[in-house]
Structure formats: structure tokens, C-alpha cells
Simulated scan of single mutants.
Amino acid sequence: MEAPADQTSSKHIVLVHGACVGGWAWFKVATRLRDAGHRVSTPDLAASGVDPRPLREVPTFFDYTKPLLDLLESLPPGEKVVLVGHSLGGVNIALACELFPEKVAAAVFLSAFMPDHRSSPAYVLEKGGTLDWMDTEFKPQDPEGKLPTAMQFGPLVTRAKFLQLCSPEDLMLGRSLMRVGSMFVEDLRLQPPYTEARYGSVRRVFIVLKDDNAIVEGFQRWMVQNYPVDEVKEIDGADHMALFSTPAEVAHCLADIAVKYAA
């Protein structure tokens, strides 16, 4: 099932990746949305994808998010985008909504961490930290602990928790292009809650991935209960990297949301 190709309803959709990958991870979804006539941006966050900086030069979550914030700041007056975050990308789009609510027609959380406006942004990351990390490596970047803890996914956790329904080719691609990243929990713990007046004013949609072994369905639904959204959609047969395993279904969901929420 492909995204509906209605050229007259073209929207600007910004796709924000999760930890340790980059904008490249959206290639299947972005292709389908562009073929349907939408404008699509897939920014690389700092120290991600082809961004040249090493993680040690990205000390805060704001620094990590800045490429997305710069994109929104550069939009012409009056233009609004549909902002989509996957996994950790949910916290990036929440920060973007806090700073630029007038530029976001809808915020879409694709099995993504979704902060509320009562707790620090780290709350949902720590609440959802029950994943069996298997062979993931966590390492301090500096003796003083001033930099965020580095994180690198191993082959076992990648196969079992993130891409268990993906093809061998997609698994190989994902493993080949992953970089060292961070959840930035130490920094996010220090940040005040995003506000109801700004972040909370943006319409939100949550897409539940029912076969996600990383951010499991029960926790996805807990986040929706914790911070109710305007609409919940579901995709069956989608693992955490639904961008690879069910790209047509993801594109169809996003196209429907864009047409419904973006003027």
C-alpha cells in the first residue's frame, strides 16, 4: 500500500532519525513520500549520518538537535511542517516544538520517546530503560563525566531488538552505517520540562509499532496514556526499524497525517 499520490496536497514533511543512525535511515519512506508529491527533509543531527563532527564535540542535547532547529528557523514565515520523530528522535521533535511551535503543523511520534510537560525530558528515557541492551557498549567520554555517555549498538541487540523483521540486506546496511551515539540522559535530566503553552500547543499523533522489541508496545501505549495525543495509529508487523521493515505502511500513515493536519 503506497502513499496516496495527490500532487495537489503536497506537504513538507521533516523526518528525524533516532540514535546512532542518520537521515539515511529514512531512504525507503522518503522515496515513497516524494513519489507521492510531498517535500521531504531528512536532516542529519549532529555527529550522526554524514555530519562530520565526532560525538565529543556535541556536549548537549541542544547541540545534537541544532541541525533540526536550524532547518526550522530557516523556513519562510508562515510555512509549517509535519515533524516526525523516530525513537530518540521523539525528544528532538519535542524540543523543536518547544522552540518553534508556530512552525509545526503536527508532531508525529513513530514509536518514539514522547516527553510530557510535567517532567524533565529525561523522564521518558529513564522510565523506558527496561530494554535488555545485550551487547550494547556504554562508555564515558571523559574522566570528569562532563560529556554524555557514548553508546554503540552491538550486532546481537541490533538483530534481536531493532531489526528482527528486516531483510538480511537491511540488517547489513544498518550495521554498516551505525555510528557511536548517545541518549544524552545526563544533560536532559538537567533540563526543565517542555511547556504546555508551547510544546503542548502542537497537535500530536503517535504511531504504535506493534512488534517493536526495543520500545515495546506496552511502553508506547503508556506514553500515550501519560501524555494524551490527538490521534493514535498502529502498524502491524513492524519492528523498531519500521523505516526498513514496513516502509510503505509508514509512508501511508505519514501521508494521511500530513493531509489531515497540515493546512
Rank of each mutant, 00 (worst) to 15 (best):
A5Y: 09
H12T: 09
H12N: 06
I13T: 02
H17N: 01
K28P: 00
D35V: 10
G37F: 08
H38W: 11
D44T: 01
L45H: 08
A47F: 00
D51Y: 09
D51I: 12
P54Q: 12
P54A: 05
R56H: 04
T60R: 05
D63K: 12
Y64F: 11
L68R: 14
L71R: 09
P76C: 05
V81I: 06
L83F: 08
G89I: 00
N92L: 00
I93M: 03
A105Y: 09
S111T: 10
H117N: 14
H117S: 13
S119P: 09
S119K: 15
P121E: 06
P121H: 06
V124E: 13
G128L: 01
T130S: 15
T130W: 14
W133C: 02
M134L: 11
K146W: 02
L147H: 10
L147V: 03
A150T: 09
Q152E: 00
L173M: 03
L173I: 07
R179K: 15
G181D: 05
M183P: 05
F184V: 00
Q191Y: 10
P192H: 10
E196N: 12
R198S: 09
S201F: 10
D211P: 07
A214V: 03
G218Q: 08
G218E: 08
V224A: 07
Y227Q: 06
E231P: 01
E231I: 03
E231A: 11
K233R: 15
I235A: 02
D236A: 08
H240C: 03
A242T: 03
A248H: 14
A248R: 14
V250W: 06
L254T: 04
A263V: 10
